[in-house]
Design a protein around this nucleic acid. Structure first.
Ligand SMILES: [Mn+2]
Ligand SMILES: [Mn+2]
Ligand SMILES: [Zn+2]
Ligand SMILES: [Zn+2]
Lengths: 142, 142
DNA sequence: TTCCACTTTAGAACTATTCTAATATACTTG
DNA sequence: CAAGTATATTAGAATAGTTCTAAAGTGGAA
């Protein structure tokens, strides 16, 4: 990981983000936070993030990838998208939104909340509270 | 499995269902088909169906449970519901519909298609075809 | 600088699912 | 209805994503 490419301001912003979540700002966490939050919204799997880390020369174990993703998830820095029975997707977009999922490319695309209008939704059954509404639009390459 | 409880007509209907899908009507398949399709729409996991089979005295291996569920899925007799990263759910309702999912009870409830109205949905990106729209409403016990 | 709580890690463990290849059964054909 | 053959079932091994363990390393408070 080339930390020279990061301005001190960027590093500080990431440090603060970790601190605010009660996480020490260690080298692996800073580097992964930079990959995840450094540019726009992203969807990653543990495997894809590990591969990406390897490519930028960051020697980080698989266990750290999983630990970090789960810690960021618990801290609310990431959300989880359940679309694929074979693996977990983590999402840097933690606001409410929906997804296109391209099955054969194992790729997710965000759909902004306002682009899906649910004009009718059933009431939650008695005794249950609404925890969230997920809309997944599955796509095939033509 | 007590096949005496099944009328010859019921057995014939299940046999035909298997045949129409190119599957031989074997004892395990007939018994599982009876459990799955014998009464209303159901959502099962491999584990829950195995347990249910055991309870009715049907000695069937885990491999047969998985084989049968996957064959029924391929044949279009079942659909799959992806809501839980930890296990697969199979659904005897193969018409288009949506779901409530109660996370802590690992339980699914059908939502008829007309009870969810998507008045606005984004177009599929260029080069992709729509394969399906899944709406999952996640619930917590109050 | 010291110290300790927290972090990272290699590798083992775990769990849902699939695979293998041997045995058993259903259906076809004579 | 008796073989014969394709298909089905099964125990157990294998696989893959993820989590756990416990030992070595590090961040930051003081
Ligand atoms: Mn987790
Ligand atoms: Mn499958
Ligand atoms: Zn997203
Ligand atoms: Zn259903």
């Amino acid at each position: 990981m080339n930390f020279d490419a990061l301005s001190p301001e960027q590093i500080d912003r990431l440090r603060d983000k970790l601190r605010a979540s009660g996480l020490r700002s260690t080298r692996p966490r800073l580097a992964l936070a930079h990959l995840l939050f450094g540019a726009g919204n992203r969807h990653v799997t543990a495997e894809s993030l590990h591969e990406e880390a390897r490519k930028v020369g960051l020697g980080v174990s698989q266990a750290t990838i999983y630990n970090t993703l789960n810690q960021f998830l618990s801290a609310g820095l990431l959300s989880e998208v359940i679309v694929d029975p074979a693996r977990s997707y983590f999402d840097t977009n933690v606001t409410e939104h929906h997804h296109f999922f391209i099955e054969n490319e194992t790729r997710l695309i965000d759909i902004p909340l306002n682009e899906v209008v649910l004009s009718t939704v059933p009431d939650a059954p008695e005794g249950y509270d609404l925890a969230g509404v997920d809309v997944v639009i599955r796509l095939d390459r033509r």
